[in-house]
Design a protein around this nucleic acid. Structure first.
Length: 814
DNA sequence: AAATTCCGTATTTTT
DNA sequence: TACGGAATTT
């Protein structure tokens, strides 16, 4: 086996100064401890093999982590290259690097700060050959996974046994997160059960197809790295030697595979391995103790079991609960003081989470005061709820809160629809974070498949995707013939394409296949990292492919009006590759593909943007905003219907609610709707059980669930029972206004967008709005399709309306 | 092989 | 509703 010397250390080993110089822990300088509370200080200063920081929401853990890393470097206990910090998103990683560098006042190159997945890709690309994998392996996302599973299920008629691509994918993912592979599953499976036998077949075929394509799915990235380390102790030793300080954030959301990876990385290097690597020219002994062994790296984990929300993807809360058992002698530091939210918000959070049994009691507190009350609102429909949110955001904005300091959270992505409709009408600048992502659009996947096919010629999935995109007259029959030919002759699909002329296909089809194969070969030459003068820029490779394939032109010249947008999207992709080339000089096509595969939803957030952020509660983890709107707090949505049957489901949903609440710094809004359109039809929604868990006096109900239902009589008993006398009086009093509100607000907002064309409006004009009644235009801003009328309505107050689509008509000119 | 139409089913959360 | 897949036509 050939050992690769760590390329990050071109100068060979550097003596870690200070470490051996004295027995005492070096003093951490005052500027790194300034302004920290005693617990935070302890977490920064502690030195030992293992440290668990139990960090409540908003307790300054990022600060503690960055100061801890900076202190290790400043005291020369560690070189930057000896530090590995695992964060939850790439954005958090970038932020951490920046903050460490700001503290040290110097660049800290060589530090690995990244997500689990990015770190594993980096290791796997470097060591790919050891496990018989191409360096250029493709990373398959869940959509790719689905395509493959769909084919397998179809081929094997597994659907007759009730298998679906989604179901099989979930099961495979679960197994991989437990570090099970086909062999170990086969050993434990009961093959007399046709279900299990069939699943084993699916699992085996799936594994083979990925291997044949030199592709890994998300779960493989972690699992394969663990296998690599276990199978090749000498390879593992290179990383065990290198990383002396490992820090893991959001430890409560690690799954078993990630846990195992950390265990492997913190293992000591045994004397025989030390000795052998030394003979290979790797400097190991400098780090070895008297017995000739390199002690395990020091491990710091940060987490909060109350914020564990990823059990569905294998996160195991035991990793944090049993940390002290796994790492004997571990020091535990508790951070409970909150520096983010008002006491009212924290009291609500504490009250909610206290209902989860089986947890260590922990109470967040702040020295900052109560702050404003939480605002509650019950809408009649999702649109009504959205309108309330839009109005409140507008009010907040007027009072000086920047749009980027405001976020709207929801449980499911489907909830964005109503919010977006209203936000567009209200001319609120917003951005949906995550959700249907840019890279998931068909035309972008097509263009990306060209790049993937160039980077990894073994990837049959990518090849098949572009084989007839754009249309070249290569249908399924031809595709099957090619695949069979490749199979029979022991060649890859790509090689079969190159020799297509020998297949006896029609001249037109043959020419199309050969042309595509040549185009890909040309592009591969351009993108070759070993190319004289360096590889061609990613943008130029993509442009070459687009020009050669005609993909972009086909979209541009299409009669289908939607293709215009698709062409623009592809052009946007080209622009993104240009940005990538500019920001990452010398980076390869593979680097680009990796980066695209591993972007997390939260990575897309632009702190400088002037927009309100919309995202799921899961995406919101780790973020904070001045004002937070938690929407759809209804039974069936939060807790979600699907969670009811899962063991531990309702408790996890409660934690999700808790995470949402604790994102808010100063203002928190809880809203729900009494009816929600589910799949076509409208159904009645009930307030979430979690709402009752918040003490009445913390919430100022603008329209309580009682108000909203008093007419229909479907008022939930549970909420009713807990209402204060004052609340009840208010309810009785507000029947009239609720009735009025109903006529005023009933969901008359139509789903189809109207077009007012070139309706001309100017200040002073009188208009009539379908929902808001009559009003006077006070101002017109914006241009073209984005012209906005500021209207002072006679009864509904101030609104901003997008002139092009608002349901308005012009009355008389004064 | 491509375009069109119709029907059935699906919706939790994500790297 | 909206999307994907199958059947049907061009």
């Amino acid at each position: 086996m050939t050992l690769i010397l760590d390329p990050d250390e071109p100068g060979g080993w550097r003596e870690p100064a200070g470490q051996a110089a004295t027995d005492e822990a070096p003093r951490v300088s005052e500027h790194l401890l300034d302004g920290l509370n005693p617990q935070q200080r302890a977490a920064v200063e502690y030195r030992g093999p293992a440290l668990l920081i139990v960090a409540g929401a908003g307790s300054g853990k990022t600060r503690v982590l960055t100061h801890r890393v900076a202190s290790l470097i400043e005291t020369k206990e560690a070189w930057p290259s000896q530090i590995l910090a695992i964060t939850f998103t790439n954005k958090a990683a970038a932020e951490m690097r920046e903050r460490v560098e700001a503290l040290l006042g110097e660049a800290s190159g060589g530090m690995w700060i990244s997500t689990f997945h990015s770190a594993c890709v980096r290791i796997l690309r470097r060591e790919a050959e050891a496990i018989g994998l191409s360096k250029a392996f493709t990373i398959y996302d869940s959509a790719d996974q689905r395509v493959i599973l769909k084919r397998i299920i179809k081929d094997t008629s597994a659907d007759t046994l009730g298998f679906t691509p989604a179901g099989a994918a979930a099961k495979i993912s679960k197994l991989k997160n437990e570090l099970a592979d086909v062999e170990s599953y086969a050993r434990n499976a009961n093959l007399d059960d046709p279900q299990e036998a069939m699943f084993l077949d699916i699992f085996r075929q799936y594994t083979r197809r990925l291997r044949d394509a030199s592709a890994l799915d998300f779960d493989d990235l972690i699992a394969e790295t663990v296998y690599l380390f276990r199978a090749f102790p000498k390879v593992a030793a290179l990383y065990q030697r290198r990383f002396r300080h490992i820090l893991v954030d959001e430890y409560q959301d690690t799954n078993h595979a990630q846990y195992a990876l950390i265990r492997e990385l913190t293992r000591p290097v045994e004397p025989d391995v030390v000795a052998e690597l030394e003979t290979h020219g790797v400097r190991m002994r400098v780090l070895a103790d008297d017995d000739g062994r390199i002690p395990g790296a020091s491990l710091t984990v940060v987490g909060d079991s109350d914020q564990s929300i990823y059990a569905f993807r294998g996160a195991d809360i035991r990793n944090i609960v049993e940390f002290e058992r796994d790492y004997p002698g571990a020091k535990v530091v508790l951070l409970e003081q909150n520096y983010r939210s008002t006491q009212n918000i924290l009291s609500a959070a504490n009250a909610v989470i206290a209902n989860n049994f089986d947890r260590k009691d922990k109470k967040l507190w702040t020295a900052d005061g109560d702050g404003a009350k939480i605002v509650g609102y019950t809408g009649y429909s999702a649109h009504d709820e959205a309108q309330f949110i839009a109005d409140e955001i507008d009010a907040l904005h007027r009072s000086g809160v920047a749009y980027r300091d405001i976020a709207v959270f929801y449980r499911t992505n489907a909830q964005t629809r109503a919010l977006e409709e209203i936000f567009v009408r209200s001319a609120l600048p917003y951005r949906v974070v995550g959700g249907t992502k840019f890279y998931e659009r068909a035309e972008i996947k097509d263009a990306m498949a060209y790049l993937i096919a160039v980077a990894n010629p073994l990837d049959e999935l990518a090849l098949r995707r572009i084989l007839n995109t754009p249309k070249r007259g290569i249908g399924p029959a031809t595709e099957t013939q090619l695949a069979n030919f490749a199979d029979e002759n022991g060649m890859t699909f790509r090689e079969a394409m190159r020799v297509a002329s020998g297949l006896g296909l029609g001249p037109k089809v043959t020419a199309a296949i050969t042309a595509l194969a040549e185009l890909l070969d040309e592009a591969a030459e351009l993108a070759d990292p070993a190319r004289e003068g360096g590889p061609t820029k990613v943008a130029d490779v993509l442009l070459h492919l687009m020009a050669g394939s005609g993909l972009l032109d086909t979209l541009r010249n299409s009669r289908d009006p939607q293709d215009e947008t698709r062409a623009e999207n592809v052009e946007e992709l080209v622009a993104q590759t240009r940005d990538f080339d500019r920001e990452n000089p010398g980076a390869t096509l593979l680097d680009f593909l990796t980066q695209v595969s591993l972007v997390a939803a939260a990575d897309e957030i632009d702190d400088e943007s002037g927009t309100v952020s919309l995202m799921t509660l899961h995406t919101a983890k780790g973020l904070e905003y001045h004002a937070v709107f938690l929407t759809g707090i209804e039974e069936g949505l939060l807790p979600h219907q699907m969670s009811a049957t899962e063991p531990g489901g309702p408790a996890e949903e409660r934690r999700l609610f808790y995470v949402g609440i604790t994102r808010a710094r100063r203002r928190l809004y809880l809203s729900l709707a009494m009816s929600r359109a589910q799949f076509g039809e409208v159904s009645v929604a009930m307030p979430s059980r979690y709402l009752q868990e918040i003490p009445d006096e913390l919430i100022d109900w603008r329209q309580s669930p009682g108000d909203a239902t008093s007419r229909g009589g479907t008022r939930p008993r549970a909420l009713n029972a807990r209402q204060s006398r004052e609340q009840q009086r208010r309810d009785r009093f507000s029947v009239a206004s609720a009735t009025k509100a109903k006529t005023e607000w009933t969901n008359r907002v139509t789903a189809n967008v109207r077009d007012n064309g070139d309706l001309e409006l100017e200040a002073g004009d009188r208009i009539r709005h379908a929902d808001f009644g009559e009003g006077r235009v006070t101002q017109v801003t914006g241009i073209g399709a984005k012209r906005v009328a500021h209207v002072s309505f006679d009864t509904a107050g101030q609104k901003k309306l997008l002139i092009k689509i608002a349901p308005i008509e012009k009355l008389a000119t004064p």
